[in-house]
Design a binder for these strands. Structure first.
Length: 872
RNA sequence: GCCGCUGUGGUGAAAUGGUAAACACAGCAGACUUAAAAUCUGCUGGGAUAACAUCCCUUACCGGUUCGAGUCCGGUCAGCGGCACCA
């Protein structure tokens, strides 16, 4: 360190520090902002809609979507441009290939972080949100993305959330029919159903169920937002308490949300995550008569075939029948246990999962299949929220029940015969029913259907499908979100008329949480008062609301009459496939939450006839996380965060774009490398020098090597291979291999003395989706001297070049000779050589004969154009 | 524990069942330069050998299918991600 300091002044004396301009291998910092300005001024990426004068209805559409960002104060992260560059390349490529391309951008700007930042800094969230959006937009513009900024959406804009509220009204005023489709609630009114009956069927309804209350954040959270008993945002403890909340009946769509994944081009892994999350599980409800009192307890089981082995029953501590069942002697113990479990957070419950706990209620139930009296226990390993909150315990064939029975010395009775050599205790797989009366000898599958039919016949139970998915807790006690278009009067809710939308949040000086479950909107006393007798709903919607339908708004972002114009929606979301968006790129972190919620809303809108497809997103691709240079996840605390702005200043936007795509497959997790950025930067500089040359004084001018001559055979081949491979690779989102092909092509041209102009212009067209600034700049420079050979206007408006298959064919090809599958010799043969000729050549090869060691060829495999394998 | 994904040079990676390691990074050598940077050229998986000749080995590990396997099938191990008392 000391020597460097000491050297400083010396270097200063003999070598005055070069300006950074001179050190640059090509003047990207001059032309990149210039092109960005020109594109913006000329609206190069404006996308006309059906009905617009310049709309060409004969072209097919391509809707390519990014998961829109949450504009934080920290600004863009290198992870953002990864997906955005991928969609930008695809979008530009599709546009050049004759599609009308919709490639928009917007802001998911409501939500907790903005509100908390505002609280911390004392600014209004509207102010900080606007600042953050400014910052993000500026950063994105400096990367040269081909967005149609006229379609920008912002979830916090009243012109946007008016329609979020409008969709909520649709949910509020809809129910799900027996066929599982959403219908207007007016149908129920026409049937003369009572107010209470109607309210109990709305897709948006009020519930008093226990919810996840986070005192630190001052809000309730959805199950999906709670991880291990802590809030996903901030990691604060979450406790369960009953509160009056708005819920959305997503469970009514559970089966469709599973089934309709089939028609989507999504990664199997993501489909699996959604299926698991929804958690379809087939089984049966079984009714047990309580002994001595007039109550039945219904349990859910996936193994009705083991009913004969049920030796006790367990209810969740919160089960509504516990009070009725508990006996005098057990009352104190039960009370104590329930007290203890409700105090426990979810975190503690799972942490203590290793050790089973529970208490006997003193009551008994009758096993309907054999009239045995079995004890009823309560235990926290049975969850109130799943199934019926009660189980029949079959300790012989269920691990949890087995553990519990051992701890409390409850009887264990075998009812399934495992295959030879397996212990029956704790055997949970399928086998043969034993000790089970009329089920004996049946396989598990047969026993299941037999007992289910028996139960149904006797009205003791029935086959059921149960889901893990719960209804969606849709209200939050915070300020920075969409207010509900709902008012309360005499304890009843009703919606406000659509004409009163958008319902703006009140202007509040103090929007901090109240510290109680009372939402901050309660502080706006004037706003709260809707009429003399009615007050407004005080909760706001969760952040997910705005992102549930933003892709629809992009289709027609300025429409003030409708959430999206009918024609615009039909065109951009249509196309004959289940999903409307042709390509959706984003991170895996949204695999269950956003993607499930958006699908749910979309299906409701579809059923009600507002959109034309049953699914929102046809093809989904998850980009992989970009790790820090140290291979660790990027984070401020590790100090390994790469700021895209710094990369743009040092190497330019094209280098950043190209590097992000060259790192490796889009979907893969991969570490950042500044050396890698330098590598693609050097590649772009080589492309620059194909066209430009530098004088001694450092002035750039058009290269003398550029000449209006046809490319020779070798260069033509390299060029056409590049056109072909890049086109195919872009479709496959295999950008890294497309870029390496462009490098191969560039290396070939660099080696050539004379640079044929029109071939280079064609190459620039291929390069332009990846490095649009450089490509447009070089094309414009070429146009100065060769106006007839260069593209007029922007390369993004030109047509993607086609390749000539004939140019790819070589006169001679290399054939590999193998003996017993091992490479022994290679020869070049004319392309026209026949199979027989090649085989003869192989057998005549000295090397081949040497390794045949005088043995006769048992078999000769000839793969034309590839190889000959001689088997001896 | 269950489910999913991934294992290839020093590194990021590439390879319709057909020449493993394209393209890049790092490294080494050379050209240019007073010198350096930049640029250009060449070499660069491991081993045997006097050898730029030649041979052997090599895609986490074990086995199978095949004329031929990084690729297909079965098993094992490791890493990453998700779910986790879901009855």
């Amino acid at each position: 360190m000391r020597s460097v300091v000491a050297l400083g002044p010396h270097l200063g004396l003999f070598a005055p520090p070069m300006s950074s301009e001179q050190r640059k291998a090509f003047p990207f910092s001059e032309f990149e902002p210039k092109w960005q300005d020109v594109w913006e001024a000329k609206k190069a990426f404006r996308t006309p809609n059906p009905g617009d004068a310049d709309f060409d209805a004969s072209k097919p559409k391509y809707f390519v979507l990014d998961m829109f960002p949450y504009p934080s104060g920290a600004g863009l992260h290198v992870g953002h441009p990864e997906g955005y560059t991928a969609t930008d390349i695809i979008g530009r490529f599709k546009k050049m290939s004759g599609f009308n391309v919709l490639h928009p951008m917007g802001w998911d700007a409501f939500g907790l972080p903005a509100e908390q930042y505002a609280i911390k800094t004392g600014q209004h969230p509207r102010t900080t949100t606007e600042q953050n959006i400014e910052g993000f937009r500026g950063q994105l513009k400096r990367l040269g993305f081909a967005y149609d900024w006229d379609r920008e959406v912002n979830t916090t804009d009243p012109g946007y959330f008016k329609w979020t509220q409008w969709i909520f009204l649709k949910l509020y005023n809809s129910y799900v029919s027996d066929e599982g489709k959403a219908h207007p609630i007016s149908e129920l009114e026409a049937q003369g159903l009572s107010r209470d009956e109607i309210d109990s069927r709305r897709l948006a309804y009020v519930s008093e169920a226990p919810v996840n209350w986070c005192p630190e954040l001052g809000t309730v959270l959805a199950n999906e937002e709670v991880q291990d008993g802590k809030s996903e945002v901030g990691g604060f403890p979450v406790e369960r308490r009953p509160m009056r909340q708005w819920m959305l009946r997503i469970t009514s769509f559970a089966q469709r949300l599973i089934d309709e994944l089939d028609g989507l081009d999504w990664p199997e892994g993501i489909k699996m995550l959604q299926r698991n999350w929804i958690g379809h599980s087939e089984g049966a409800h079984v009714k047990f008569q309580a002994d001595g009192i007039d109550e039945t307890i219904t349990v859910f089981t996936t193994r009705p075939d083991t009913l004969f082995g049920a030796t006790y029953m367990v209810l969740a501590p919160e089960h509504r029948l516990v009070d009725e069942l508990v006996t005098e002697e057990q009352l104190a113990a039960v009370e104590e246990y329930r007290e203890k479990t409700t105090r426990k957070s979810d975190l503690e419950r799972t942490e203590l999962a290793k050790e089973k706990s529970g208490v006997f209620t003193g009551a008994f139930a009758i096993n309907p299949v054999n009239d045995e009296k079995i004890p009823i226990w309560i235990a926290d390993y049975v969850l109130q929220g799943y199934g019926t909150g009660a189980i029949m315990a079959v300790p012989a064939h269920d691990e949890r029940d087995h553990e519990f029975a051992k701890k409390f010395s409850l009887p264990v009775k075998q009812v399934v015969q495992p295959p030879e050599g397996k212990e029956w205790q704790g055997f949970t797989d399928h086998g043969i029913a034993v000790n089970s009366g009329f089920l004996d000898g049946l396989t598990t599958a047969e026993a299941k259907s037999t007992i289910t039919a028996w139960l149904e016949e006797k009205s003791l139970g029935k086959g059921t499908v149960n889901f893990k998915l719960r209804d969606w807790l849709f209200s939050r006690q915070r300020y920075w979100g969409e207010p509900f278009p709902i008012v309360w009067e005499e304890g009843k809710h009703r919606c406000i008329p659509e004409s009163e939308l958008p319902l703006l949040p009140p202007t509040l000086e103090d929007f901090r949480p109240t510290g109680t479950p009372e939402p901050p909107l309660s502080k706006a006393t004037d706003w709260v008062r809707y009429s003399d007798t009615a007050t407004r709903e005080l909760n706001t919607m969760p952040q997910w609301a705005g992102s549930c339908w933003y892709y629809l708004r992009y289709c027609d972002a300025q429409n003030s009459e409708r959430f999206v114009g009918i024609e615009a929606e039909k065109y951009w979301m249509g196309g004959g496939k289940p999903g409307g968006v042709d390509l959706y790129v984003g991170g895996t972190e949204h695999a269950v939450l956003h993607l499930l919620y958006a699908r749910f809303w979309h299906k409701v809108l579809f059923d009600l006839g507002y959109v034309s497809t049953p699914e929102p997103f046809q093809r989904l691709v998850n980009q992989g996380l970009i790790m820090g240079e140290d291979g660790q996840k990027m984070s401020k605390s590790r100090g390994n965060v790469v700021n895209p702005d710094d990369v743009v200043i040092e190497y330019g936007a094209d280098s950043l774009r190209l590097y992000e795509m060259f790192m490796g497959p889009l979907e893969q997790v991969k570490p950042w490398s500044m050396k890698g950025v330098e590598g693609v930067y050097r590649f772009l500089a080589r492309v620059w020098r194909l066209v430009m040359q530098q004088s001694e004084e450092g002035e750039w001018s058009l290269s003398h090597g550029l000449q209006d001559v046809p490319a020779n055979k070798q260069l033509t081949k390299a060029l056409h291979e590049t056109i072909k491979k890049c086109g195919e690779d872009i479709e496959k989102l295999s950008f890294n291999t497309a870029i390496s092909q462009m490098m191969v092509c560039t290396n070939a041209f660099t080696g050539a003395e004379v640079k044929p102009v029109s071939a280079i212009v064609t190459f620039l067209k291929v390069l332009s989706p990846f490095a649009p600034h450089l490509a447009d700049e070089l094309n414009a420079r070429i146009a100065g001297k060769f106006p007839a050979l260069a593209v007029t206007g922007f390369l993004s408006d030109t047509v993607w070049p086609s390749y000539d298959p004939a140019a790819l064919i070589e006169d001679e090809i290399e054939i590999v000779f193998q003996v017993n599958g091992k490479l022994r010799d290679k020869v070049r043969v004319p392309l026209a050589a026949t199979k027989e000729e090649i085989e003869a050549l192989a057998l005549a090869s000295a090397r081949v004969q040497e390794f045949m060691e005088g043995n006769p060829a048992k078999k000769v495999i000839v793969v034309p154009g590839k190889l000959v394998n001689v088997v001896v």
